[in-house]
């Protein structure tokens, strides 16, 4: 993201060099709608959520300032802490599975597509189809396919002699989170594939020709030349995966498993915890202040991830002029 900031600064420098065009009313008119809508419905709610997390609701409807009290409750109160750490841990597992399955798979598909095989465009178009579908639809489709009631998955596995491996994965505590993660991988692998594919296409041919003349094999060219050149894109893919983990993952788990993250909270993530805390569920009464606290914790966790990426990962990646 630093390059975005740098670009923004560079942009203002070129802008400054430009001829002044008199008056500023039109500039304000051009900017006002965006700045207003964005500030009111995106930035203000975020700040307001942070503020709400510092208060505690009273039975009479008023709110009392309690500083970081809600955070202490979330992190240390026995009932809350167990849910919080469980949800965070599940989120990290979700992220981990995406990093070791989705992104390498995206890289493999992109690398194969970049060889420009025949029908490459068709493969690319079809592999991207799941990404377009609503998470709700994807969730139900897989729920049906994996369902022991319908038996499609079981029947197909039996047909190739693997029937004994089948289990109702979504319903078992040990496998539910992995199953949900893999469904999500299936849906979203198109995004890293496209981003990496585009990066591979932007590598100049002269560079690859030179390597071929030097006698490098196709595999060596990929490993020693292409991969180092697309590292910045892999970094972007990683941080997008991390952020998506805390946002869009909710929709999938909510549609397949519901808001409690069953069985026994094994698929409970920060998104479902926030939803439950805010709106209440069954025995639990909704609490905006604790809901805001969970949301703010998600904000800080995302911030930590983005900071690590900006300072630790992106700085170290050499950017080649291509």
């Amino acid at each position: 993201m630093t390059e975005i900031v740098e670009q923004a600064i560079g942009r203002s420098r070129t802008a400054r060099r430009r001829r002044k065009t008199g008056g500023i009313t039109h500039i304000a008119v051009f900017l006002a709608p965006t700045v207003l809508i964005y500030s009111i419905f995106s930035i203000y709610p975020l700040i307001e959520s942070l503020r709400l997390s510092l208060f505690d609701g009273q039975p009479d409807g008023s709110a009392v300032w309690i500083g970081l009290g809600n955070y202490a409750t979330l992190l240390f109160d026995a009932n809350w802490a167990v849910r919080f750490w469980n949800a965070l841990w599940n989120n990290l597992i979700l992220f981990f599975i995406h990093m070791i399955v989705q992104n390498p798979l995206g890289l493999l598909l992109a690398a194969l597509l970049s060889l420009a095989p025949r029908f490459g465009g068709t493969y690319r178009t079809l592999i991207f189809v799941p990404t377009l579908l609503s998470v709700v639809i994807v969730g139900f489709v897989w729920e049906l396919i994996l369902s022991p009631l319908w038996g499609v998955a079981e029947g197909m596995m039996s047909a190739v002699g693997l029937g004994w491996l089948y289990a109702p994965w979504l319903g078992l505590e040990d496998s539910a989170l992995t199953a949900v993660s893999l469904i999500s991988v299936w849906q979203y692998v198109g995004i890293p594939m496209m981003l990496i594919y585009a990066a591979l296409l932007s590598i100049p041919d002269e560079l690859l020709d030179a390597a071929r003349v030097d006698g490098l094999s196709g595999f060596a060219i990929f490993w020693k030349i292409k991969l180092p050149l697309i590292l910045p894109t892999l970094g972007i893919v990683a941080i997008l995966t991390y952020i998506g983990n805390f946002t869009s993952a909710f929709d999938l788990i909510y549609s397949i498993q519901g808001v409690l993250g069953p069985p026994d909270y094994s698929t409970d993530i920060m998104g479902t915890l926030m939803f439950r805390t805010f709106f209440g569920q069954q025995t639990q009464i909704g609490d905006i202040h604790m809901g805001a606290t969970v949301a703010s914790m998600m904000f800080f966790i995302i911030l930590i991830g983005v900071t690590i990426y900006l300072l630790g990962v992106q700085r170290r990646l050499t950017r080649y002029e291509m």
């Binding site: 993201m1 923004a8 709610p45 975020l46 959520s49 952020i243 946002t247 905006i288 949301a295 904000f299």
Partner: peptide, 17 residues
């Protein structure tokens, strides 16, 4: 820079407000 913040921070986190 202010507008770019919105790319990094999901709007859902402000749902309560």
């Amino acid at each position: 820079v202010y507008l770019i913040l919105g790319i990094m921070v999901p709007i859902r986190l402000g749902t309560v407000a």
